[in-house]
Amino acid sequence: MLAKRIIPCLDIDQGRVVKGVNFVNLVDAGDPLENAMYYDGEGADEIIFLDITASSDRRDIIYDMARNVADNIYTPFTIGGGLRTVEDMIRMVKAGADKVSLNSAAVKNPEIVRDGARVFGSQCIVVSIDAKSNNKGSFDVYVKGGRENTGLDALEWAKRVEELGAGEIMLTSMDRDGTRQGYDLELTQRVSDAVSIPVIASGGVGEKRHLLEGFTKGKASAVLAASIFHFREISIQEVRDYLRENKIPVKS
């Protein structure tokens, strides 16, 4: 049976792992390779790196990081952030990323999803959606780290990127990100039900129960968390044991 996935996420700024709340108060939190090797050893199901480097002249560092990580671990990993063209994606996959994640670039030019899928196959293309609830009972898609409302409806956008050939959706709740109150389960479940591609739940994990809820209530195929793994509050193995006790199929 296919195991449900547990995915630690690392934010990368200019080649270093950083941690902050809602993209502010960033603190240096170590070397990406060291962190990746730790998660590799822990048997994480995948690892996601999100490049948040702002200055464009420092953005090439992420390709070296991808190469370095790919050469040294045997765990699949995804890289997102700052990828704007098919050429960027080709370069990133060539550097060693197993999957690439698109966010703003897909909103700006949806055809990039189709073009990417044609070159790599859908399984390689993740579309990252940052969603925030509005006062109409639905969710809007945000870009630029949650600062800009695109006016797109999250459910419609999820269906659209599936049509375009995305292989997976990484769904982050901007309301919950950094709050440690758990995933936005309504958002996660609605998007998961709306598409036939896997959905990775993201944003808001503060304890292991939240990860379980991502599967049972959110209907996610994978759960992502950053800080609880990052600050070693809980190990991947503990999460796996806990999920198994709760009848969620996980890798042995």
């Binding site: 399984q123 997976e168 036939s196 896997p198």
Partner: peptide, 11 residues
């Protein structure tokens, strides 16, 4: 009647 692509660890 499952999510496609098939992504992850399987036996």
């Amino acid at each position: 009647d499952e999510k496609v692509p098939h992504i992850g660890w399987n036996q």
